[in-house]
Design a protein around this nucleic acid. Structure first.
Lengths: 270, 270
DNA sequence: GATTGACTCTCCAGTTGCTGGAAGCCGTAA
DNA sequence: TTACGGCTTCCAGCAACTGGAGAGTCAATC
């Protein structure tokens, strides 16, 4: 017969835990004196080892209690083991989901920083590479765009391969009934019926990175048009806005720091 | 301004949870009337969305609260995201460990059943295949064997490829100072200095499956020796016991149901 | 026999993120 | 007026402990 302190060392469980197990009926001491002192025997020690083994597999205590009173051989608990297995597999799946969501966000953020650092805030003429996108064409008001991106983001998940962008199929600014298409560059074929998956053409383009709130985009467009007129460039439709930095996944951030690259392909008319 | 019920629908959070978040200081309603009624505004809604997003990543509430009051942009929480990432990765690792331990046990049990079903309880002459083992030779009393198996099990882990067995290097039964070697068949090279890793030779053997407690093994040995004498077979050392079914990982089980195959290679003396 | 120090006891509270219930107030419609 | 729904606070419970307070017990020593 061991006192609780001795048994604690033998079983490798804290005294507090032993008292708790007693209270829960999981491990009942062989003898309890009138003064409340608990004394444990070798059968208790065996039970304690079973408990420890099952707890390392994170079996709940009440299940362990019932196993201890109903089972005497490993084969009796096979069902419980398979059930536990399912549960653990489910947990792993769930945590893996979380992990990949975090990784996506971090990846996204890192990339944002890269493209952002590489972009000047002046009018540039440069060559755009063709890019595979999935887009969702919508008609309405510009603020509706958020919902479009929401849908795209949810469905595309980890297929997203770059900063979100928007194509404007109108030749001029429209408050209502505008025709635009939020889209994401993607890394492989996607088959969602609502989305238009295609390759955006590359080519010579003039671009300008607009830093600040979307409400001031007009001024940057004006600059671009002015430049195009000077250089006698004819700009092709649709125009594109690449959201180098906009509202984040969690926080809106500061609109004064938003960065949006406006891109116009130059129509070759030779 | 929305009442708590309306806001609950808008934010997709139960009323109880909103009150709880208020109490915890995570989401404080824009206005609280003298009668205690809570009213929420659009800023609260934004905060609620941030909270929901961060909760799906299982951020703790107090961390969310501090993020909400200190951060306004996604880049502010990059550190927290990476920390969360670590934490989640740790959890996955841990659960994966548990999963593989469960799988090992299930695998073990399934195999036990197979070998058990395939074994007759009569003296048999059969051919044994060579088998790669890791063994731990010990001198002492038989009950010490348990510790040896414990060590082997812990170190070999998922390399174990079959039921445990024991080699007896003595030519006769010894209570004390016996020379025996608990071992496991293994699936690949193992380099633990204390263990002897080698191939057990195969060959013609006589075997008998002993069903019952280890204490009665003597009777089965006697049967075997008698048979060997009748047939004028000379038995080679070490003899082997294969523990088809013994005490389990968790429970001891019923000794009357233990099954142990005794194997003696037949010394070829042509 | 008294005292000391280690050991043990019970009871309560706190952890995390809610969830449920009881009892009671508030506002409105029939 | 009364019913009803919505709102309030407060308390309890989950799971598996952990920590602390305050008090009783044991064995040995002085």
């Amino acid at each position: 017969m061991l006192s609780i302190g001795e048994f604690s060392k033998a079983a490798g469980l804290p005294v507090k835990t032993l008292r708790f197990y007693h209270e829960k009926g999981v491990l009942i001491p062989a003898r309890v004196e009138a003064n409340g002192y608990r004394y444990y025997d070798s059968r208790n020690l065996e039970a304690a080892q079973v408990i420890v083994a099952l707890r390392t597999l994170e079996f709940p205590l009440d299940e362990i209690a019932s196993l201890l009173s109903n089972c005497s051989s490993d084969e009796d608990i096979l069902d419980h083991l398979t059930a536990r297995r399912e549960e653990v597999a489910r947990k792993i799946q769930q945590q893996t989901d979380i992990l990949s969501r975090i990784d996506m966000t971090l990846e996204r953020e890192r990339e944002t920083r890269m493209t952002f650092a590489a972009s000047a805030s002046e009018i540039e003429e440069k060559h755009l590479e063709p890019v595979l996108i999935a887009g969702l064409r919508m008609k309405g008001r510009y603020p509706e765009m958020g919902k479009g991106f929401g849908q795209l983001g949810r469905k595309l998940g980890r297929k997203i391969a770059g900063a979100g962008m928007c194509l404007y199929h109108d030749r001029e600014h429209r408050e209502e009934d505008a025709d635009f298409e939020p889209c994401f560059p993607i890394s492989g074929k996607v088959t969602v019926p609502e989305f238009s998956v295609r390759e955006l053409p590359g080519g010579r383009a003039i671009t300008l990175v607009h830093v600040g709130s979307y409400e001031d985009l007009g001024r940057s467009y004006a600059k671009l048009f002015e430049h195009a007129e000077e250089k006698q460039l004819s700009l092709s439709c649709p125009s594109r806005e690449v959201f180098l930095k906009g509202p984040g996944v969690f926080f809106k951030g500061d609109p004064a720091k938003y960065a949006t690259e406006i891109q116009f392909l130059i129509a070759d008319n030779e």
